[in-house]
């Protein structure tokens, strides 16, 4: 412990500044990309290239989202990008964030200034945000389906339908645990957007980019605008999966896209053994002219 403290103290400045930076690049940038991708389930309705898959807006959204997910899953070295671009920076930001947050105290009853409440909320949103990210990643990415109300396993081949089912707790229907999960998502994602927007504002002070009070105020308006737009994007995405996606229709659109990539056989094989994701890919490679 003493040695660890020694390390923290020796590299105090660097660690502090890396903590500040990591919240913006890569984590903040990822947040923007991730929320924009997810909101495609709604803005995809305006996507002309999704038109062949569905006649209605909801279907085009599902198709667009599926294409976005496929694009991401086809990125080269995806696992490396995830580890070094996401997991490690997030772990770093979270661990140091907790260490730093523990050096603070709460005195908002006595000094009920807006800035002080922002300071407190930044720390609270960090804590709740970590819990949310953990649940989000464990239940959807790591496949800890026991955390999902009806045990739906999210599949990136059937992205919108399985996500909607995992959120609502039942394919197409609302369940009580599903409502709780949905509310948790709403709170979690809103707090994380706040955490990012407020962090963007304080980072400018930390690095000495905004110096005068007037500059801090101006930058505050910019950060508020960023926060509002991002909050809108987040709510659009969440609302889209909860209210716009029809399970059966989404499934049909996604199967169509699956067949396009991996053929009828691929779909059949995948249905028989959904765990073996390689199977479908192998078939696709074997018959390159397909789809």
């Amino acid at each position: 412990m003493a040695e660890q403290q020694g390390f923290m103290e020796r590299h105090h400045f660097l660690l502090r500044r890396l903590h500040s930076l990591s919240g913006i690049v890569p984590i903040g940038v990822f947040l923007i990309v991730h929320l924009t991708t997810n909101a495609s389930v709604i803005w995809g309705a305006a996507n002309g290239r999704a038109a062949p898959y569905a006649a209605d807006a909801a279907g085009r959204g599902v198709a667009t989202f599926q294409h976005e997910v496929n694009f991401i899953n086809n990125l080269p070295l995806l696992l490396l990008i995830e580890i070094f671009g996401l997991w490690l920076p997030i772990a770093f930001h979270v661990i140091l964030g907790i260490v730093y947050a523990m050096t603070g105290s709460k005195n908002t009853q006595t000094y009920a200034y807006t800035g002080n409440k922002r300071y407190l909320l930044q720390r609270l949103s960090g804590y709740v945000g970590v819990l949310f990210i953990f649940y989000h990643v464990a239940s959807l990415r790591w496949g800890w389906t026991f955390l999902v109300p009806n045990g739906t396993e999210w599949s990136h081949y059937f992205a919108a339908s399985t996500l909607a089912a995992a959120l609502k707790g039942e394919a197409g229907m609302w369940t009580t645990p599903g409502v709780i999960v949905a509310i948790f998502y709403f709170i979690g994602v809103s707090l994380l957007v706040y955490h990012f927007a407020n962090g963007l504002w304080t980072a400018a002070i930390t690095w000495g980019i905004t110096v005068s009070e007037a500059a801090q105020k101006r930058w505050g308006y910019v950060c508020t605008a960023v926060g509002v737009v991002l909050m809108g994007t987040a709510w659009t995405a969440l609302g889209g999966f909860l209210f716009a996606v029809d399970y059966d229709q989404a499934r049909a659109v996604e199967e169509q896209i699956f067949i396009e990539h991996h053929g009828e056989e691929g779909l059949q094989k995948f249905m028989d053994n959904p765990v073996d994701e390689q199977a479908a890919a192998t078939i696709h490679e074997a018959e390159p002219g397909d789809g």
């Binding site: 105090h12 730093y100 050096t103 005195n107 800035g115 002080n116 300071y119 930390t206």
Partner: peptide, 8 residues
């Protein structure tokens, strides 16, 4: 760097 920008 230990300032938390609460601005109290």
């Amino acid at each position: 760097n230990d300032c938390g920008n609460a601005q109290n």
